[in-house]
């Protein structure tokens, strides 16, 4: 909602900056980082549908993300065109989301988390061990990027623009969804599932549809990923990837539109910076996770503000308020 309530000019400036980014950034390395941020923002927005608005924490979304990637890459590898590969990848991912959803929605809360984790591991297992299909640890190369309407996406600039376009479509869809009756229904199932049922809603089906919606955009993000990276390996399906996506959602603040985008930016930039100096990304990922959960459960941005205020009061020598008014 915060995104919708922001002044129109702020939104306009942000979009103008994004559209002109390649011209004032120049360096292809940074343009590529921007593409990464946007594609992971799509992934994080998709996951946030479940985590933020549905109250369903999935640790198996890397499985769906990788499944789209593998389906696309393998179709291309088999000699099919981009359109066929992309459509197949999305169809496979939505179908897999249906299977994931039906199984995981046997439960909610921790049970949901465990089942999605296990399902994600199955995808990882297939990617890693089913050598004849997935080429195992060696991964699959994606040799070409598509050229929609004759425009090649081979350059960093053009790929960035294509990613930005997809991102904006995803963002608009999400913004509509958040304000829509269906969005309200989903949030209702998160807050009072029992009451929603008594009011005439099919809670299970609402959650399943949300899962499919989330799966669809996860698939889109997965396709963007293989086109960006031009390679996919089992690591993409690993628990770390699910955890990274979840970190993007919770670090920015759940159940907001801006949160997952900010979270994607934070995580991608940090990953690029950390990886440039040390090989300790997992350690950093773990530390951030622990720090956020322990000290800033509401997300990095609101959490920093709160901690800053506390520190400020402490410095001024006034007793810090024990409890903030709860939302």
């Amino acid at each position: 909602m915060s995104w919708m309530n922001a002044p129109r000019w702020a939104t306009g400036v942000a979009i103008a900056l994004l559209i002109t980014l390649p011209f004032w950034v120049g360096n292809p390395y940074y343009i590529n980082v921007a593409s990464q941020i946007l594609l992971f923002a799509v992934f994080a927005l998709a996951l946030n549908v479940l985590v933020g608005y549905g109250g369903l924490v999935s640790l198996g979304h890397a499985g769906l993300f990788a499944m789209a990637g593998y389906a696309g890459a393998l179709m291309l590898d088999a000699g099919h065109g981009h359109l066929a590969a992309d459509l197949t990848a999305i169809a496979v991912t939505v179908l897999a989301s249906a299977v994931f959803g039906v199984l995981a929605l046997r439960s909610t809360g921790i049970g949901f988390l465990m089942i999605t984790l296990a399902l994600g591991q199955i995808v990882w297992g297939i990617a890693y061990r089913w050598q004849s299909l997935t080429n195992g640890d060696n991964g699959v190369n994606v040799t070409t990027r598509p050229a929609p309407f004759g425009i090649s996406l081979a350059s960093a600039d053009n790929f960035y623009f294509a990613t930005l376009l997809v991102f904006l479509v995803a963002l608009i869809t999400m913004a509509l969804f958040v304000r829509s009756p269906f969005g309200a229904s989903l949030r209702g199932t998160r807050d009072q599932a029992r009451r929603m049922n008594a009011l005439g809603y099919n809670v299970w089906l609402i959650r399943l549809v949300a899962f499919l919606f989330s799966g669809f955009w996860t698939g889109v993000a997965g396709l963007l990923f293989i086109y960006y990276n031009q390679f996919i390996s089992p690591q993409v399906a690993a628990l770390q990837t699910s955890a990274e996506a979840l970190l993007m959602v919770i670090s920015g603040g759940t159940a907001t539109l801006l949160g997952p985008i900010a979270g994607a930016a934070i995580v991608v930039i940090m990953k690029n910076v950390v990886s440039a100096y040390v090989e300790r990304w997992n350690l950093v990922l773990g530390v951030i996770f622990v720090a956020i959960i322990t000290f800033m459960p509401e997300g990095l941005v609101p959490g920093s503000v709160r901690l800053w205020k506390l520190a400020w009061r402490a410095m001024r020598g006034r007793p810090a308020k024990a409890a903030e008014p709860s939302a």
């Binding site: 350690l283 996770f289 622990v290």
Partner: peptide, 28 residues
């Protein structure tokens, strides 16, 4: 660590997940 989040099951689970990454990297 977990005691600080007493009763909040989801954050507890995510905390153990974060710690597992730390342990994995430290072992490496």
């Amino acid at each position: 660590l977990l005691r600080r989040l007493n009763g909040q099951e989801l954050p507890q689970v995510l905390l153990t997940l974060g710690l597992s990454f730390i342990i994995a990297d430290v072992c490496l």
